[in-house]
Design a protein around this nucleic acid. Sequence first.
DNA 1: TTTAGTAATGAGAACTATTCTCATTATATG
DNA 2: CATATAATGAGAATAGTTCTCATTACTAAA
Lengths: 157, 157
Amino acid sequence: MIDTQDKCHSSVEELLAEKNQRYTTHRKSIVRVLFELSKPASLSEILAVASQRSINLPISTAYRNLAILEDCGVVRRLIASEDLGLYELAEALTGNHHHHLICEQCGDVNDLSSNSNLERALSRAAEMVMDQIDFQVTGHRIDLTGICSNCNKVDSA
Amino acid sequence: MIDTQDKCHSSVEELLAEKNQRYTTHRKSIVRVLFELSKPASLSEILAVASQRSINLPISTAYRNLAILEDCGVVRRLIASEDLGLYELAEALTGNHHHHLICEQCGDVNDLSSNSNLERALSRAAEMVMDQIDFQVTGHRIDLTGICSNCNKVDSA
DNA sequence: TTTAGTAATGAGAACTATTCTCATTATATG
DNA sequence: CATATAATGAGAATAGTTCTCATTACTAAA
Ligand SMILES: [Mn+2]
Ligand SMILES: [Mn+2]
Ligand SMILES: [Zn+2]
Ligand SMILES: [Zn+2]
């Protein structure tokens, strides 16, 4: 499990090299932002953080690089929000298998580390599926939905 | 658990009535298509089936009615496909709690009934979340991802 | 059965996140 | 340095979805 940003960057560099991609300044900025946020972020959030640091990151470049990073296994694009792509560092990169907490009110998404209980129940379910119907399970996605602490405060106020 | 289409329609009628919505012909057509497909369908799939039955269902009307049906708890809009909304009858209506099998190759989505093992592991995970962080879990979503039977055939051919 | 009043419809415009295009710029390599 | 290739960035294009608004269909009261 990658814990320092330096290790992260060198791993990314390798992953990109495997596909003959350069680890450019823009791409480093994106990875740095995602590493530091350590939660799924939309494109505009990524741009906002970059902007705070006086990094000019054009929209088209950001999208293109996120797609390339995804293709190289550095970034994962989540399907969690109704109408917005959310990006995070890929599990293959961080070594941190996890699921997500999604607030139904504000749409905020946060990581949630898994537990062996759950993972065991899931593998059993996957085995049953592969036995009973002809579907080859290779992964899973779990979201717990509800109301986040922020929205809870606002509601009770 | 609703098993016949008649029961389904009368439940829908009640749900709509609660919000002073009429159960129009278009809305019935949509519910009928979703009931019979019994798998998540995109707007164009819904329109295609309707069209086969010589039902003219304009795009804007279909979208509007799907949104209203969702608001009344009749329809659920899934977040499963990258760039397409998928619709199915809501669990509250059918009484059939289930998860989804998603083919990573062709994007096809199918229902998968859950099992008590998995649901128990999930409730425990939800309790831990509510204990440890201030997030109120009210639901969950599980997708098993992999390769469907169709894509498996094509690949090995 | 009229008659308002309200809800639903449908064609097309508008919106918006994302992707594409292509001319320019940066980088790597011999 | 010279050349080839990759990356960039501004803006156009795309596409799923929502919005607008004039028309039509219901509903419920008179
Ligand atoms: Mn997981
Ligand atoms: Mn479930
Ligand atoms: Zn929230
Ligand atoms: Zn498939």
